[in-house]
Design a protein around this nucleic acid. Structure first.
Length: 117
RNA sequence: CGAGACGGCCGGAUGGCCGCGCGCAGCCGGGGGCAACCCCGCCUGCGUGAGGAAAGUCCGAGCUCCCCAGCGCAGGGUAGUGGGUAACACCCAUCCGCCGCGAGGCGAGGACCAGCGCCACAGUGACGAUGCCGGUGACUCGUUCGCCGGAGUGAAACGCGGCAAGCUCUACCCGGAGCAAGGCCAAAUAGGAGGGCGACUCCCGGUUCGCCGGGAAGACGUGCGCUGCACAGCCCUCGGGUCGGCCGCAUGAGCCGUCGGGCAACCGACGGCCUCAGAUGGAUGGCCAUCGUCGUGCCGCUUCGGCGGUGCGGCACAGAACUCGGCUUACAGGCCGUCUCGCUGA
RNA sequence: GCGCCCGUAGCUCAGCGGACCAGAGCAUGUGGCUUCGGACCACAGGGUCGGGGGUUCGAAUCCCUCCGGGCGCG
């Protein structure tokens, strides 16, 4: 998990934006050997209960696709209001599509990830 | 049986697999130390992990820092009376007023002969008004004055009324900020304070061993100026402080029981308990099974009140962030107790 | 964690205890004018004054409490 505000600021400035009706993501290549995630659940989503539920489902989705991740990425996952009613399956599908397009997932994105390093 | 009032309580249960925060224990790895040992990481096991409102942040406190000579003014708040409490705008009792057939409910309920202000419409007349009607008396006989009575209007009247959740007065209370408080450890860069150097070398003589006197060579980073000071520069030390980390940070006006005091709120004594989490981009989640419960479809039975089986869908309001005491608001469904009214039966 | 402001017609806003007080402009509708349209003129519809409770004879206005929206500070 991303913790420092500087990491979030760096993603805001230099991250590549991928979007989906349920989610948006900012993706950035790093020199670290691990892939880290940050979650953004704004107040527009709803009450604290709703925001916590969304965040837990996102964490569960990330956990389930842990083995397929490429190392060396920072990802900021931004929840959009339409995600509130979505179950874990729909969130997982959306997240997988975004990460594949960003090159973070091993299945699709291996070839374009190394070019810019 | 129906309708209702008040008080209290619960707010899904059990199990399986995967996962998360914290605590303890163990193993492994790394680092520090002479050592005892300490620190960090990983894994395993055990334990533990949201609420009655954790919410809104409307009051009151604890705690911490700042200011702290004392008092007053200003500003804010509270308001029958008595009690409870650490304190309160909370709670209890009671008086009064209003609402309800009742059980009960609601009430910021001090003072307008200290002052100022405001009283629409209606009404002859509305704030200290000559102006209405009737009766009666007086005389300088009038649109006069005095006395008695009066329906209607209106929240209020022929009366020096009403309103202070109008200004105000009275009594009492209130210093400011808030755990991002505050404390400790402590990079890089910049800046601050103090100290040292701020010329060096050589020769001779003296010495109380700190230096002093004379000479030579050479020439000051800058200014004055002449051999000292200031500044620049370099070095050392110190403290403040940012990133980051640690503490604060969970045993507390605590919970449960018995007895006693009190109408009660509550208080006291004794005994027992740690069951009440502790994150810091913020842990309690994902999938599933059975049961419970609510709604509904179908089938069967029925004494037409329902019962059994099966399928589907749902199970609220809501998420700790320094900690307590209250208030307010949200909430599927359910349980217990006391009481009131109505109908019926004995 | 603190502090402040706003909510009135579809929209932008007046109204600061009294029913000639619920209004103005824009917008909407109808009619007129015009060959038609625009502009203009006339008329009309439209509001639980964000919700609830209280004070008062009387509340959009005063007080309390919720709801929604916005802003600022650390």
């Amino acid at each position: 998990m991303l913790t420092h505000p500087q990491d979030f600021a760096a993603l805001q400035e230099r991250g590549t934006i991928r979007s989906h009706p349920l989610l948006a993501a900012r993706v950035m290549r790093t020199e670290l050997g691990i892939t880290r995630f940050g979650l953004a659940t704004g107040r527009a989503l709803g009450s604290a209960v709703v925001r916590n539920r969304v965040r837990r489902r996102l964490r569960e989705a990330i956990r389930s696709m842990q083995p397929m991740l490429q190392p060396g990425w920072d990802v900021l996952v931004i929840a959009r209001p339409a995600i509130v009613g979505a179950d874990l399956g729909a969130i997982g599908t959306a997240l997988r599509r975004l990460l594949a397009r960003g090159g973070v997932l091993a299945e699709h994105g291996g070839e374009m990830g190394l070019g810019q390093g």
